[in-house]
Design a protein around this nucleic acid. Structure first.
Length: 859
DNA sequence: GAGCACTGC
């Protein structure tokens, strides 16, 4: 028989909640309650039973699909019904609701999309935000929208925000003085916390520290229950598990890894009941998404891989960061769910006190173009002045607006949503991909692009590589004539679909069946939305490489890359950015000069690299022709206007690219390079030292430079001899600065703000530059060598190879050469490093007096 | 030496 557990701590609030609700005077309610208090199942029922919600629906927002499903099932059971009746559940691709549904558990994105369809939330009388402290992007935006709806159109709408302690003050401030505030205690066992920082003399890796701490603890206290170890990622987990399995004292323990990319079966094995004591080595999945019964001991490395968005470069990053105090408490709490527990933190108490209280919300760490588009489509004209719960950084908003202008989604001047923007907002997808899908549909290639776009949004089609050599990879699906990595991706997915998503067949191909199925569903959703907008029938064939490249350009014009030389995978990206191309890519072939990339993430692993993947070859004349022209004819009049705007925008963009990067004024070296270039052009300077690489550069650079004819003429003058110099000569001008100052203050000026944490943790003490153009970096060994690559990259704009012997890194001189005749010979370039430096220096001194320009003989 | 956390429309 169904029943509710009335001993749950949340029932302490029942009377207060009923009183607030029946008095009819609560429009906004904040409930402070930790996990395990029963709030997610009981509060919605209390609201319903109080009768204060009339005939309307109570919508409960959950951050995870699994939670929405389980809660609906539990509550339906408690009320003696089935999911789909009085209690419903709606997540992507699954809608179990009916006319009689009164409580609807949904995932956060569902409500956001519903708000676009129906800005008044007709028929909804209350919205409950569960686990709001997790501060997901969709939850944040949904709350802000709901507050707006309540204030402007629906004063009767009730808003309930349930959160752990941390956010409560901010919430009360945001929601205003009339907010009712209720507090409930959780039910948790005490967890004793111990700080175990690494000892000075060890200075070893995390995994060694984990093993020593765990072994020491078991020796002193014996084994009681399971242990859970938190590490930042799979690399660290693999190392730790290997060491644990090899250690003699772990006999009789079951040892498991646990992270999100593992299949559900393997995850279940790690989580399931076990007769022998378990050691589970996990990432953040075990912090919120997955609970493991019987854990009594938590070992916390205090680290996580955290995504961020570097607004200045427009690049997503994934770096290893110290977790916040709130996260640390959450992790520790995992030891106290079944009985009193203990948590060993592998850092010091001083370190702990210095950590941030809570992790910055997702909205501060992502590309906001989708958010801005969704708000505009929802009728919020002034997104900058919007009543955010926490306003995003202005620079991030500017970047998002600029990106939407490039796509033609908002008007260049008024910033109002264009008809094209309206169409883009209908797609649950990053706007740039949405743009590509619309373009693809006009050419009759919707399916190919819907599938490939879906593949970039969901779990990896190829699961983490196993040791078995029989597994295939994406490369195995490539053809020699391919011009895009998306072709292999599509082929891989097609073969899974061709096999009817048959499990064994897919496993043999190395393909994750669930991912392939999900891609199928997502792609179909995209197609269903785009189809009515274009009405061009899909062609029978898949697009050829040129068509793919041209279509992708409409959404990825800011992601054009060129290889720097055939010898390396290092690439230049428009806007003066740098990256490293993935090895298994069509763009890694010798004949590819220009390409665009679907993915661009700065990843911290053994070193820190901007990884470029999902490349598609393009040709410069496609850019010149500004591809959209040719669709205008096909697409008809309705599209003309917005398309023309896109074209204009793109043309301007390519002209402005270089100018922008200069104007950002990152460091004076940019200007120094400019002056040097002028000097060379005027014949005052000659190249003294010939670098054999220069010739290779010229070919690449000619291609890139050809995008910017106006720029060259405008900036360098009409001299026939033109030379664009970037990067190093510049570094050379700033040498003395770096040489004589401890490097930290320099870094503080130069590193992007979100990476300033690097300075304290890992900055080298000094950087020295010798006359032979090699850089010697003396650094704190605890900082680790991967960081050096980052430092060099930021200091000099140079990508170094990760292998560093004896601390010396060759400083590569990059000379971006011209396409005019005289400069293409070695003689012309020779002698650049000549003694005429003195003249330049005098000029530089005038323009940038605060820099101590070195004497000529020091250079 | 071995490729990168977690969600979600």
């Amino acid at each position: 028989m169904a029943s509710r557990d009335r001993s749950l701590p949340i029932f302490d609030l029942e009377i207060d909640l009923a009183r607030a609700a029946s008095a009819g005077d609560f429009a906004r309610l904040v409930i402070e309650a930790p996990t395990g208090s029963g709030k997610s199942t009981q509060v919605p029922q209390m609201l319903l039973d109080s009768g204060s919600c009339g005939d309307g629906e109570i919508v409960v927002l959950e951050p995870r699909r699994l939670a929405a499903r389980m809660l609906a099932r539990r509550v339906a059971w408690e009320r003696g019904g089935e999911v789909g009746g009085e209690i419903g559940c709606q997540i992507r691709f699954e809608n179990r609701t009916s006319r009689s549904t009164r409580i609807r558990y949904v995932t956060e994105g569902i409500l956001l999309r519903q708000l676009l369809q129906d800005p008044n939330l007709t028929g909804v009388s209350a919205v409950v935000f569960d686990e709001f402290h997790e501060r997901h992007f969709y939850g944040d935006v949904s709350l802000a929208r709901c507050v707006d709806v309540q204030e402007t159109r629906r004063p009767d709408l009730k808003l309930v925000v349930m959160s752990a302690t941390l956010q409560v003050e901010a919430l009360n401030a945001y929601l205003g003085p009339d907010t009712t505030h209720l507090i409930s205690d959780g039910r948790m066992y005490p967890v004793e916390i111990e700080y175990c920082p690494p000892k000075e003399r060890h200075g070893d890796a995390v995994w060694d520290h984990v093993l020593r701490t765990l072994h020491g603890y078991y020796k002193d206290h014996g084994v009681d229950g399971h242990a859970l170890v938190f590490l930042p990622g799979t690399h660290e987990i693999r190392k730790t598990v290997d060491l644990l399995r090899r250690a003699s004292w772990t006999k009789g323990f079951a040892i498991h890894s646990l992270y999100g990319e593992l299949s559900p079966q393997v995850q279940d094995a790690a989580v399931g009941p076990s007769a022998t004591p378990k050691i589970v080595v996990a990432t953040n999945v075990a912090e919120t998404s997955i609970t493991i019964d019987g854990v009594r001991l938590v070992i916390d490395s205090g680290l996580e891989r955290r995504s961020d968005f570097d607004v200045r470069r427009g690049i997503s990053t994934l770096t290893i960061e110290k977790i916040s105090r709130a996260s640390a408490d959450q992790r520790a709490g995992r030891a106290g769910r079944t009985g009193p527990g203990r948590c060993l933190r592998l850092w010091s108490e001083g370190d702990h006190a210095a950590r941030e209280a809570a992790t910055r919300a997702e909205i501060h760490r992502m590309d906001l173009s989708e958010a801005v588009l969704v708000l505009k489509a929802g009728g919020i004209e002034d997104v900058r002045g919007f009543h955010w719960f926490e306003a995003p950084e202005p620079a991030a908003l500017e970047k998002a607006h600029a990106a939407l202008k490039t796509l033609g989604a908002i008007d260049e001047e008024t910033e109002a949503l264009t008809p094209l923007g309206r169409d883009l907002s209908r797609l649950p997808l990053a706007p740039r991909y949405a743009r590509v899908l619309l373009e693809a549909a006009r050419h009759g290639y919707l399916e190919f692009f819907a599938v490939t776009a879906a593949a970039t949004q969901s779990r990896s089609l190829f699961p983490p590589r196993k040791r078995r050599s029989s597994d295939l990879e994406l490369v195995d699906f490539m053809e020699p004539t391919d011009g895009s990595d998306f072709q292999a991706l599509y082929r891989a997915w097609s073969s899974a679909k061709g096999a009817g998503f048959h499990f064994d067949t897919c496993v043999r191909m190395g393909i994750n069946v669930n991912a392939a199925r999900e891609i199928d569903k997502v792609a179909r959703q995209f197609a269903d939305i785009v189809w009515p907008l274009t009405d061009v029938p899909d062609q029978d064939s898949v697009p050829d490489a040129e068509t793919i490249g041209r279509i992708l350009l409409t959404g990825f014009s800011d992601r054009v890359c060129a290889r720097l030389s055939e010898a390396t995978l290092a690439c230049a990206i428009v806007d003066g950015r740098r990256g490293m191309l993935e090895k298994a890519s069509v763009a890694a072939r010798k004949d590819v000069q220009l390409f665009l990339v679907g993915e661009m993430v700065e990843v911290e692993g053994r070193d820190v690299t901007v990884r470029l993947s999902l490349a598609t070859r393009i040709e410069e004349n496609w850019l010149r022709e500004q591809f959209p022209h040719d669709i205008q004819e096909r697409a008809g009049a309705a599209w003309d206007d917005s398309t023309r705007r896109v074209v204009a925008r793109q043309e301007k963009r390519f002209r402005d690219l270089v100018l922008e990067s200069r104007q950002r004024g990152e460091v004076p070296r940019e200007q120094a390079a400019e002056i040097l270039a002028e000097q060379v052009a005027a014949g005052n300077l000659v190249l003294k030292k010939w670098d054999p690489e220069v010739e290779q550069w010229i070919a690449r650079v000619n291609t890139l430079a050809s995008f910017f004819p106006e720029y060259e003429i405008a900036r360098i003058g009409d001299e026939e001899r033109r030379l664009i110099l970037t990067q190093v000569c510049d570094g050379a001008m700033g040498y003395k600065d770096i040489k004589e100052r401890p490097v930290r203050p320099v870094l503080r000026e130069w590193l992007p703000p979100h990476q300033s944490g690097l300075i304290e943790r890992l900055a080298p003490e000094r950087v020295q530059i010798s006359k032979d153009r090699s850089v010697k970096v003396t650094y704190d060994p605890a900082g680790g060598k991967p960081k050096i690559a980052v430092l060099i990259q930021h200091l000099f704009g140079i990508k170094t190879t990760p292998t560093i012997s004896d601390g010396r890194i060759p400083l590569v001189v990059e000379i971006l050469a011209p396409n005019s005749r005289p400069c293409q010979t070695t003689e012309d370039l020779a002698g650049f490093w000549a003694g005429s430096y003195a003249g330049v220096r005098a000029q530089l001194r005038g323009r940038y007096p605060k820099h101590a320009w070195p004497e000529p003989d020091e250079v």
